[in-house]
Every structure is written in C-alpha cells, then in structure tokens.
Design a protein around this nucleic acid. Structure first.
Length: 1045
RNA sequence: GGGCCUGUGGCGGAAUCGGCAGACGCGGCGGACUUAAAAUCCGCUUCCCCGAAAGGGGAGUGUGGGUUCGACUCCCACCUGGCCCGCCA
C-alpha cells in the first residue's frame, strides 16, 4: 500500500489493535504469504503424493481473464469472489477442490496496442499478466497457482494446435451421429461400404443444391488422387472454404460487420469491399442437433440456453423442387409447405447460381442490364447495409418455374431480402401468409392468393396465424399443422420434395490475418494442397516479427506472410510426413481467432504440466467425470472405441459473464463434443452447471434530455437538504435553481466516487439560513446539480451507467483495497445484491462492510491488548445460574443464534445467495456484541463461518484463538437441527386479511389448537366485533386468517 | 419487428413453496462519549392522518384488471428501464 493512499482511521489516539486499513493490509499480506509458502491451496491430482481419494471432488471454474494493460476492473473480482467462497466452503466440507486460474492472452487488443506503441505483444502481455496475477493474489483467492498457464505459452498452444489436427482429421458420421477419424472414412470408400462422393451434408456444397446429388462416376480405386482428396476434404470437420468477408485493403485485414460503416472502415474511414476469402472453417453445423439437444442436459441459466437454441435456430419444414424446363429444378426451403398453393412467385438471392445462368443465357423477358446492375450493387453491399433499409427492391430474372402444386408457371425474381447463406438461397414467395413476401408483392404488383382463412374482420395484410386452408385443392379445410403433414407426404410421393430440418447456425470461420494468435499446424505444397504438421513436430511456433503493421494490399495477405524465413520451408523442416522431406512448402500464414485458446483450457487445468498428452486420462476422468482414478496403469482408448457409457458430467460450477452466453460457450461445447466422440474426453458436455454474474455498473448523471454527463466534466454538487416538495425546475433546460429567499447554498465539489466519510475538504452541499447562518436540513432526498458552461446551476439525475473511461466512473480495485482491505472488498461486492443481478457500485456503502469486520474483530479481540476477549458462556443468558454449562444452550440465545447462522450461511452459499449469508453474519455479530461477547467455542465456530467470505481476518482470529493449522482447512462447523426451532412461536392473526393481533402458540400446536388460542385472544375478539366467523384458515407456524361475515 | 430480464422506502436490497412487506447495509435524524471533531456506541427512520405521549387509524411492492380466505409472489393487458437477436423463408 502506497504511503499517500488514504486509509481508514488515521487517528493516532485509536486503540492500538483496532481493525484499520493498515491492520487489514498487514493481516492480509501476512496470510497470503503463509498460504503461498505452505501451499495451502495446492490440490494434488490422483496418483500424486498427498492426494486423498476418499474425498469427493469439486471442480469450480472461473472464466479466465483477458489480461489487458488496464488491469482488473471491479467485474473480475465479482465472479472470482463468488467461486472463491464456494470453493472455500466446499473445501471445509472435505472436498478435493480444483480451483484454477490462467490467462486468455492471445487476441486483438494486445496486437492493436502493440501497433500503437511499438512494444511487442510478448512484452505487453507478460506485463499485463504479471499485473493481473499480483492483483488477484491480493484478493486472497484460493487458486491452485501451480496450475497457472496462459494460452500464449508454447506448452499450451502446442496442444491447441494438436486439437485442431484432431478436428482436421475427423469427419461427422451423420448416421451414427458422431465424429470419427478420417481414416475410417477412407477405409469405407476403399471397401465400397460408402459411395465415394462429395459430402452431401457439406454446407459449402448444398447452396447450389446440385453437386450433392451427383452420383460417383467411378470406384474409389480408379479415382485420381486429387479427386479423392477433394472428396475427403469435403468431409473434414476443419476445411478450407470461401467466405465472403468485408475486406479493407488499406488495413490489410478482414473486418467484422460491426466494424464497417457505410462501406468504410470504422477506424480510418478506408473503403471496404466484399470479397470471397479462402478461410479455415469448422463444420460446427454438423453438430447443430447435438449442440441443441445437449442444452437439455445441463444446469444453465434459462436465458443462456434459450440464446444458444436461437443461435442454432432449428426450423422444421420441407425442401421443395420447382421445375425449370430444360435445366435443374430450383430448390427451396420453407417452413410453410402448407401454403404452397399460394406461392405466386419465387425469389433467389443475388448470389444464387440461377442469377448467373440468367445473365449468361438470358430469356426473352430478361432485362440483362437491369439485372446485372442490381446484382452488382447488391453483392457489394454489406449485410449491415442490406438490413438498414426494409424497402423491398428486386429485379425479375426472366426465368419461370412450375409450381408443383398448382402446375402454374410463376416468375423468378432476385432480391436482396433473400440471403444466400440460409437454406438454399431461394424461397417460394407466399405473399398471403408472409409479411416480407406481401411487401414485395405489393411493391411489384405480383398476385396475392390467401391459402389460410383469416378470422372475420381481418385487415388487408398477410395472415400468419392458424386457420383452415383455402384455395388449396386437397388441403382445403385442414389446419396448418395437419396441412403441413399432408403436403409433405404428397411432395415426397411425387418426388419433388421432402421433410427437412434447417439450422440458422453457420460454419465457424476460424482463421484471421493477424499476428497475435496460434499458428495453424498446416503447410501448403507447391500444388496448393494442405498438409498437417505431424503431432511430434508441434508446436508450430509463432515467429518473431519485428514489424506487425498491417499489410496494405488488394489481396488478403496475413501478417505472418511477412516472416518470409519462417513462411517458406521444406516438408522435413516443418515436420510434415505426407511429403518428401525436401519438398518445398509454404506455411499457413493465417492465425487462429481469439476463441481458440478458451475452447479447452478447462481441460488443461486438470493436468497442466502434462508433456505427453493434452490432459492425462486419469486426471481428466477424475475432475471432469468424478470417476475414481483407475488402478494399475492406463486405460485403452482406441480412437474408434465408442464413447464412454453415460458421458454425464463436466465442470461442477462455471461462473462468468453473460456476454459469453453464445460464442465462447458454444465453441467450447463444439470442441468438447468432437473430443468426446474421438474418445479423448469422458463427458459429452464440458460445463455441468453454469452461472452468470451480473454486470457491476457505476453512476453517471443525466441531463433532462437524457444525455449523460461524465462525473468530472461538470462541477457536481451533492445535496441532501432540499425541501421535499421543492420544485427545482427539472423541466426546462434554462431554468435556474431557485431556493426560498432565506436560504443560500454553499457549494462544494462532491466526492461522488469516493466514500463520503473520507472526504474532508470535499464537504457536501448544505443549505444555510441567511439570517442565522444555521445549516438547514430538511429532508432525506438526494438532489444533484452541475454547473453548465455558462455557470448556471442545473439539476441532473443520478443514473446507472456502464463503467467507462469517457464517463470517468471507473473504479480501480487497487484503490479500494488500499482504503479498506481485500476482505472488505470481497464482502462489499458479495453484499451488493444477488450475484446474477446487475448492480450499481456505490462507494458510500462500502463502509458498512468495513464496519462489520471491525465489529467482528472487536467482538473477539481486545482492541487494547490484541488478545482474545472471551466470555464464560453466560452471554445472553438471563443469568449465569440459568446456564450451567457454557455452550449448552438451551437458555443461551447467542448459542442458538449461532446454530441458525451456521445453517443459514451454509444454505445460502449452496444457492449462491451471498448477500443474505452476509446479512445473517452481521445479525449474529450485532447480537453477540449486544450480549457481551462469545465463548471460545463460539468464537472458534464463528471464525470458521466467516472464513470463506473474509478469509484473512478469519485466519487471524483463528490463530489468535489458538486454532491449529489454517482455518481454511478447518471443518465447517456443525449445527444442531433442534436449535433451529423455538418452543413457542408468535404468529399473526388476520381478520379479513389484515393483521389485527399476534398470539404466541406452542411450536408443535396443531391447527385446531392454534385456532382456539387465536379466537380466545381479546384483541381478536374486539376486532371481530361480534360479526359471525365464516371460516378460519390456519397455517401452522405462520398465521391465522379469520374470515368474518 | 421479435425474444428475455427488470420495476419494492431517500439509496443498494430482503421476503427461498401463495401466508406478518421493508431483514441487513448505506444515508438521515436524535442521543452518549469528547474542549471540539473524527471514530465508536445506543435509539429512531415506508408514507399519510389523529395524539403531548403511550398508542390508534389509513394507504402501500410500476399501472389497470383477474384468480384466492390471503398476491411483491400466480394469470391477462399496459407502461418504464435494460440486455440480446434481427428480412432466417
């Protein structure tokens, strides 16, 4: 703690052993050193010395941080404190606890920072990690730091690359519903068991709709090697595909849609083009159904499961073929095949092959110039731009198809509201039952036929609801669900359609043109074919690069292409066995995206130093599945062995932000399922229980027009003395504050983000009587003002806002720890409110938790001597003689309350309700203080209850009380169930729903007895006032409700 | 446009299964201690009305309806604030 930091209680006259910030700092750093020196939280693995197989396991994971140069913000310790409390609590219950921490350190921000400052990301990342580690250790979190690693460590990304190769070397067997090694596919082709044709389920081939149905022209053995390769590659779970991206030549990189504004880059304003780019893709779509179904097996927040399900976006419908005379049919996907009789025209995406065909071989009605102009304009527009305007645009292609249901010839249009990336890139337009089709038909004068009868009085708009079919031949009268079944059966019978499930999920674009990421373990030969680097040649190290400025180019050039010495090598040098050693090769110069490292880090924590395997089998099984370690050597896991029997399990508790609800959690599940299918991990899902901590927000101020005011941009004033019915003129911008004439304002700068008690010269706004100079305090209402630039005083309202640099409302955890200590910080964040809720940081409130720790300390420790001050057990008893044996308790209310506190805190920790657990401890300390103190046994047990929350203070108390070892290792105290119940309870008596009296009844009284006691009560009789009693409801232990006539 | 969440004193929040609304903390007010202040300790603190006080009465969990002996809690509609997804056929 630096000397100029403010600290609590600087008063030298305070007792020498008061719990001050300085004492907290001394206690906390001392215990942190002892924990570290003695390896207090080191958790051995099965088979290691000190491992206790008799204990149950608990794997509790935090989302590891991206170590930015800015250091921790207050959101990090929120989730980390929560898991820390649960881990400490479970450890005290005798669990083997795996509680690791590491660094998600590859990624864009470090690289951007390097570009700006010229400092290499290796250095900035190392510095940021050191700072994060220092900050986290200062919180006293019980991580097993011996398991720490970063995703940038060669020992780690070596295995990230290894897993990539496993995915690359796998295909998804749709019949068996799981991934298998690619060699098994090749064997099936060789044996003739499987027809050697392109993968019919490959997204990159289904768009056009034709290739997939091609039958093989020759057996596998006679195929050219390149043909075989193309077929095999079409099955790989990692494949090279062409994806249209936003390409910015000036920045030399592809940009996300969010980074492109009006066709220019958000940063720099450089032009951006849509360009197909050769990219590594993951066939995550193969897992769509598994990823969807798995959501039912995990204990996750409902909202997150819903979000993932919607992201996957399953829709059930049909694929229908519309005949085009003289060529292949146009295939569409629809969720409403029942409306096919109302399909009056077709629309294809501007990128659809049919459009190109129409341009190359225009029909008599094709307006080639208009079509070409429209298509070019549409293709160059980004998705974002396409969505900006809902105005329907489009051009007729000149092509007609035949509606298989009506037999009618209907026109094919192209329009950019149809997307090439979904379904088949073509739709049948049914304006009668679809808003978009309706709008389009209206705009271009196309016919509208209703095929579902709308309810009477329905307006001039498409009808999306249920109703009997009309104008639909044999479907007429059927409701939607039944009509769907009937028409699908009909389509299948006619051979022009089939039932089909479609997913919104797209394949995962996995390569970036950046420097600061994992290199791919792939090389390209001279003929442009990819080859894997052999497992034993890993890692493919990220080359040193002095210049990581983006490459300015019209053609995509990944940054690693600058490392020419690294880039061009030979197969032997690169460790590629599928080519002769002297064959020249070019390394894959793309890098993996930031998500890669976080897809499997939870597995590495189980066994982070393993040099032979990405995670040891026994360790993985023990921590992920809970299966006891197997004796007598290794288990055979042939890659093709079926997945282990149940596959249930995963990380027991995973806490992190909801911003990862979809991407990280979906990507990690995908990798995990591939590893599971290959028999490399033992569970089907990685995270059994997931929880999101809420965002910690801060304050900002809002002008009447709702614009936000940064807290230091204006001269803020804090006031709690405005008369409550005083109108401060909120409504008009230019209205000045007008106070009654006898009042003048004394205005001081407000200490908005510091605790008010520390502010000495930063006085609050007060109102002063002009005659007497006396301070006037009317009421308890917070009113805030600021000086506008014209120096007029105006009112602003405090509001909740995200912490941001621009609003100057960011809290630095280091400052808070310096002022109060880590234990207070931990308690404060946990006391703020429910863990999952968004909560505003209010510096004013921190002091309450600090005072609680002070009272807890003073309850047990004499502030003069620093030694325990304990009572003989008569505390709270009516008299010492009534309480013969110290903690026995019947007559000792503090003992009873302690039992209840132990029970309450334990139950609350289990349900992650830390705020109410802390409230219970505060109540206990207050009651015990009032009662005069605790016995040694009570103090001992209380220290253990406090330990998960304020571990440093608890260790200090424990040591002073003569406890052995660490309180962190002490068992959680027991409670006596009998102590939780009173002999007598006070229950409320309601007359007609209003509480009119309270009566005391024996706790075990039955309903009839309670009723008679209640009715006998004088107040009750008075309230009934001789009205007839209609009914009496008795809820034992709660209340009596008397219904009168 | 769709989906999800949210709304309780001056503030953060509590009420775990439909059963005494406001636990606990902050802030505020009053008191003790002190030359004084800070710190600490004690008491009061949802609002309104009556009362010197003890006490009594009424209202009350965003708004309006409903179910129920009883609703912060369940149902319907609406409003506020927030988050997510968006022409997904």
């Amino acid at each position: 703690m630096s000397a100029d930091q403010p600290s609590r209680n600087p008063d030298p006259s305070a007792p020498p052993h008061r719990y001050t910030a300085a004492l907290a700092d001394a206690i906390e750093t001392r215990w942190q050193q002892r924990w570290e020196a003695e390896g207090a939280f080191r958790q051995p693995n099965p088979g290691e010395p000190g491992f206790d197989a008799a204990r149950p396991k608990f794997y509790c994971l935090d989302m590891f941080p991206y170590p930015s140069g800015a250091g921790l913000h207050v959101g990090h310790p929120e989730g980390y404190t929560a898991t820390d409390i649960v881990c400490r609590y479970r450890r005290m219950h005798g669990f083997n606890v795996l509680h690791p921490m590491g660094w998600d350190a590859f990624g864009l921000p470090a690289e951007q920072y390097a570009i700006q400052t010229g400092v290499h990301p290796v250095l900035t990342t190392r510095r940021a990690i050191d700072n994060f580690r220092r900050q986290l250790k200062r919180f006293g979190f019980c991580y097993d730091w011996s398991r720490e690693f970063g995703t940038v460590d060669e020992d780690y990304y070596r295995w990230t690359q290894w897993i990539f190769l496993r995915i690359y070397g796998s295909w998804y067997d749709a019949e068996r519903g799981r991934a298998r090694p690619i060699e098994e596919l090749v064997r099936e082709f060789e044996s003739g068991e499987r027809e050697p044709c392109l993968n019919p389920n490959a997204a990159e081939y289904t768009g056009a709709g034709d290739i997939a149905s091609d039958k093989p022209v020759m057996p596998w053995s006679q195929m050219h090697d390149d043909t075989r390769r193309m077929i095999v590659d079409s099955y790989r779970l990692a494949y090279v595909g062409a994806q249209t991206v936003n390409w910015c030549p000036k920045l030399g990189t592809a940009l996300a849609n969010e980074e492109v504004i009006d066709g220019r880059s958000e940063r720099g304003g450089f032009p951006v083009f849509r360009k197909p780019l050769r990219q590594w893709m993951f066939r995550i779509t193969a897992y769509a159904e598994r990823l969807l179904r798995g959501l039912d097996t995990v204990d996750w927040p409902e909202s997150t499961r819903t979000q993932q399900a919607e992201w996957i976006g399953r829709s059930d419908g049909a694929e229908v073929e519309f005949e085009i005379p003289g060529t292949l049919p146009l295939r569409v996907f629809t969720t409403r095949p029942d409306t096919i009789f109302g399909a009056t025209y077709m629309v294809v995406a501007p990128e659809h092959p049919l459009v190109d065909a129409a341009l190359d071989y225009p029909g008599p009605e094709t307006d080639v110039d208009a079509l070409r102009a429209y298509v070019q304009a549409a293709r160059n527009r980004s998705d974002v731009e396409r969505q900006e305007s809902r105005e329907k645009t489009g051009v007729f292609t000149g092509v007609y198809v035949r509606n298989p249901a009506t037999g009618e010839r209907i026109p094919v249009w192209t329009a950019d509201y149809v997307l090439m990336g979904y379904g088949t890139g073509a739709i049948m337009a049914v304006p009668g039952q679809d808003q978009r089709d309706w709008d389009f038909a209206r705009a271009f004068g196309l016919p509208i036929v209703r095929t579902v009868q709308p309810p009477p009085g329905f307006g001039d708009e498409p009808y999306l609801g249920d109703g009997p079919a009309i104008n639909s031949d044999f479907l007429d009268g059927l409701h939607v669900a039944e009509a769907k079944q009937r028409i699908i059966a009909w389509l299948e019978e006619k051979g022009v359609g089939r039932r089909r499930v479609n997913y919104r999920l797209r394949d995962w674009l996995f390569s970036r043109q950046r420097y600061w990421g994992e290199p791919f373990p792939i090389v390209w030969d001279e003929r442009g074919r990819h080859h894997p680097v052999a497992d034993d040649a890993l890692p493919v190290r990220l080359p040193e690069l002095a210049d990581y400025q983006p490459v300015e180019s019209d053609e995509p050039v990944p940054l690693l292409a600058k490392a020419t010495g690294w880039l061009r090598t030979t197969a032997g040098e690169a460790g590629v066995r599928t080519l002769p050693p002297d064959a020249p090769v070019t390394r894959e110069a793309n890098t993996m995206p930031g998500w890669a490292g976080s897809c499997w880090y939870y597995l590495r924590y189980c066994d982070p130093r393993n040099a032979e395997r990405f995670v040891g089998e026994a360790a993985e099984r023990y921590w992920m599945q809970g299966t006891p370690p197997l004796r007598g050597g290794s288990v055979s896991t042939s890659p093709s062995a079926p997945p282990s029997a149940n596959g249930a399990g995963g990380v027991d508790l995973y806490i992190g932000g909801a911003e990862h609800a979809v991407l990280h959690l979906l990507y990690a599940r995908f990798w995990h399922k591939v590893l599971f299918d290959l028999g490399l991990v033992s569970t089907d899902e990685p995270f059994a229980r997931l929880f999101h901590q809420g965002l910690i927000t801060s304050i900002a101020f809002q002008r009447p027009d709702k614009t936000l005011v940064a807290i230091d941009q204006v001269d803020l004033v804090y006031c709690n003395a405005i008369p409550k019915d005083f109108d401060v003129g909120h409504g008009r911008e230019d209205e000045l504050l007008q106070l009654p004439s006898e009042v003048e304002l004394a205005i001081y700068k407000a200490p908005t983000l510091k605790s008010t008690t520390q502010a000495e010269d930063e006085k609050q706004l007060v109102t002063v009587d002009r005659l007497t100079r006396a301070e006037i305090r009317w009421l308890q209402q917070d009113v805030f003002f600021y000086h506008e630039s014209d120096s007029r005083l105006k009112r602003v309202d405090p509001t909740v806002a995200k912490m941001s640099k621009s609003l100057r409302n960011v809290i630095n955890p280091d400052d808070v720890i310096a002022e109060f200590g880590a234990d207070t910080f931990r308690l404060y964040e946990m006391y703020l409110g429910p863990l999952e809720a968004a909560k505003p940081w209010n510096p004013r409130d921190i002091t309450g938790l600090f005072r609680f720790l002070q009272r807890a300390w003073r309850l047990i420790i004499d502030e003069e001597t620093g030694e325990p001050r304990l009572t003989d057990g008569a505390n709270g008893a009516r008299s010492a003689s009534e309480c013969p044996s110290p903690d026995s308790p019947a007559a000792n209310p503090i003992e009873k309350l302690l039992h209840r506190t132990i029970a309450k805190v334990g139950a609350d920790v289990e349900r992650l309700a830390f705020n109410t657990a802390i409230a219970a401890m505060i109540e206990f300390v207050n009651a015990a203080t009032a009662a005069g103190g605790l016995t040694r046994s009570q103090a001992d047990r209380f220290a253990r209850v406090l330990a998960p929350f304020a571990p440093h203070l608890a260790e200090e108390l424990w040591a002073k009380l003569g406890g052995r070892g660490f309180v962190s290792h002490a068992p959680w105290p027991d409670y006596d169930e009998a102590m939780l119940h009173d002999d007598e309870v006070e229950i409320a008596v309601q007359i007609a729903g209003k509480v009119r009296a309270k009566v005391v009844v024996p706790a075990d009284a039955d309903a009839a007895r309670i009723e008679s006691i209640a009715l006998a009560d004088a107040k009750v009789q008075e309230a009934i006032a001789a009205r007839p009693v209609r009914k009496v409801i008795v809820v034992p232990g709660r209340l009596v409700n008397i219904v009168v006539g």
